[in-house]
């Protein structure tokens, strides 16, 4: 069994009541608004990106990576604790061939749908209800991967 890399490494040891999750909902709301307002959910923006005809998406992803990188380095350097009092732990990603094969396949799908998993949810919320079908199909894709996982190279 290859568990690492795709395993659940997010869980915290602290048991929290359900409503403590509402802060993630709130963060998600902001995230969704940004995705609509910066037109990241647009199929056209993804086409522009892959055709190298607009800087927009490169700017978005590039800025996000730089901001994320600086933040993570500060958190690590200060050995910061979460608001729940736990030391922040970020697990390393282990390499496996899935990152190549799966990565290529996801890229094909990203260009077709104009959406990675995040924008799928936002598109549905923004009223593109047919994306529910895309979303269900993505769940099915995830399920098929889970079922045939042991037969795939990793």
């Amino acid at each position: 069994m290859v568990e690492s890399g795709t395993a659940c490494v997010n869980e915290s040891a602290v048991v929290k009541p359900w409503y403590s999750n509402l802060k993630y909902l709130a963060l998600g709301v902001i995230f969704g608004i940004v995705f609509v307002k910066a037109e990241i959910i647009s199929w056209f923006r993804i086409q522009e990106m892959f055709r190298f005809e607009s800087f927009h998406m490169y700017g978005v992803i590039g800025t996000a990576v730089v901001v994320g990188m600086i933040s993570v380095q500060i958190i690590k350097a200060r050995k910061a604790k979460s608001f729940e009092g736990e030391p922040v732990v970020i697990h390393d990603k282990e390499f496996n061939k899935g990152q190549i094969y799966g990565g290529l396949i996801f890229g094909l799908g990203w260009a077709i749908t104009g959406a990675c998993p995040g924008p799928l949810f936002v598109q549905i919320g923004a009223g593109f209800t047919v994306v529910i079908v895309t979303f269900l199909s993505a769940i099915f894709g995830t399920w098929v991967y889970g079922k045939y996982r042991d037969h795939l190279p990793h």
Partner: peptide, 28 residues
């Protein structure tokens, strides 16, 4: 709609993440 969605779901799970998990969190 359907093929595109399937490739997104299958590919991201095989890759162990998507734009957020790999491109943003992982690179960060």
């Amino acid at each position: 709609t359907v093929l595109g969605g399937f490739l997104v779901g299958f590919g991201t799970r095989w890759a162990g993440g998507c734009t957020s998990g790999h491109a943003i969190m992982g690179l960060s």
